[in-house]
Simulated scan of single mutants.
Amino acid sequence: MDIVELRTPTAIVRHGRGRLIVLRPGSEGERVLDVPVTDLLKVRLSRRADDAVVIEIYLRYPTPVLTGVPADRTPLPVLIAEHDVPAAAEIVERINSQILAGQRIDVTAPDLNPPAPTWAESGPTRADVERAAQRMSQRRDTGGAVTALNRYVTAEEYVLETAVAIAHSPVGGGLGLLAATTERLLFISLDPDDPFAHELPIPAVLWARTTEGAPSAPGEVGARGQSGMDVHDGNITLHFSGAERADIDRVTCAVNFAVRRDSADGAAGPADPGVAQLYSEWELLVERHSLGMVDDAQFQRYGRGILRSLPDGG
């Protein structure tokens, strides 16, 4: 999508390539907001009590930070001149159309029905397992682990990608076969003297990412000295050092695909904040106000933001 820009007295609004950017005017071009459109709940034109027209940008979640201050459901207002209203209406419609398009189901999806195994003297063999293993750059001495993976996979899961990697504590030490399926992340040891397997269910995974020799952050597990993959479950970060970067990249993409597929199963797109969630935020706001953590002006502003985030609020 082409980039369009609207220059207002107080800000520059830029939309395109799946992002919405708001800059302060001037040579510095300070970014007030830079988010993917999928992080937006809605955008709309509104006329304030003082008759000024503003573009109100509502974030899907209250956690992102605007200019160093938690959003708390309060829309980011962009003041526009009266003669800019037609251009502003076009960009608002364009953004909302992309928000809606992002909530539609993409019916073009791979066939992830687990194939039936074929049986031989060595045991079962699955086509998805063999295809994933064949894609690995490093396949030497992995035959035993691939045979084990053929036995470990269930009739409900599809093997997406595999890679040879070194697991760090608490997964276990040593070299092994890392396999991403639609249901689990598996690690199968390649050490014949110390055979073990470790699994992590996909619903427990928040994200995976590749690493490139970055230092460990507090609370993370495993030293990093080479390319690898981090997998975070909301509590700890597991680290796997990759023997081949291309293989690890494919496993990382496969894990994130499985996580998104699991969270979106049965949903048309990112869920809007429900009434129960908004009510919890309201209770927290009331408590913060009663404790003096939020003044009256902030209470009114944040409260309006919560109320206007309700399905009938805008």
Score class of each variant (00 low, 15 high):
76 L>S: 12
82 E>R: 15
281 E>D: 15
111 D>Y: 00
313 G>N: 03
151 R>T: 03
86 P>T: 13
33 L>S: 04
17 R>I: 01
300 Q>T: 00
208 A>T: 12
18 G>I: 02
48 R>P: 00
73 R>G: 06
70 P>I: 01
255 V>Q: 11
162 T>C: 15
85 V>T: 07
227 S>D: 12
308 R>E: 14
312 D>A: 09
230 D>S: 14
266 G>P: 11
165 A>L: 14
39 D>P: 03
267 A>G: 01
177 L>E: 05
201 P>G: 03
58 Y>H: 12
258 A>D: 03
93 E>L: 08
182 T>K: 06
280 S>M: 08
141 D>K: 07
201 P>W: 01
290 S>Y: 00
137 S>Y: 14
302 Y>G: 00
32 V>H: 05
291 L>I: 02
305 G>W: 12
140 R>C: 07
203 P>W: 09
150 N>H: 14
191 D>M: 04
169 S>P: 03
71 A>G: 02
163 A>P: 05
246 A>G: 08
63 T>H: 12
136 M>Y: 10
84 D>F: 02
290 S>H: 05
268 A>G: 14
214 A>S: 15
127 A>T: 08
184 R>W: 01
313 G>Q: 05
222 G>I: 05
250 R>I: 00
5 E>V: 12
155 A>W: 00
129 V>I: 10
13 V>G: 06
9 P>F: 00
1 M>F: 08
285 L>V: 04
195 P>K: 10
196 F>N: 08
102 G>W: 06
279 Y>L: 11
113 N>Q: 12
143 G>T: 14
213 G>E: 06
72 D>W: 10
118 T>F: 06
21 I>E: 05
191 D>H: 02
263 S>R: 11
303 G>L: 11
187 F>A: 12
40 L>Y: 06
223 A>V: 11
280 S>E: 13
60 R>D: 03
41 L>K: 04
283 E>T: 08
311 P>D: 11
43 V>A: 08
275 V>C: 00
311 P>F: 09
112 L>N: 06
199 E>T: 08
204 A>I: 02
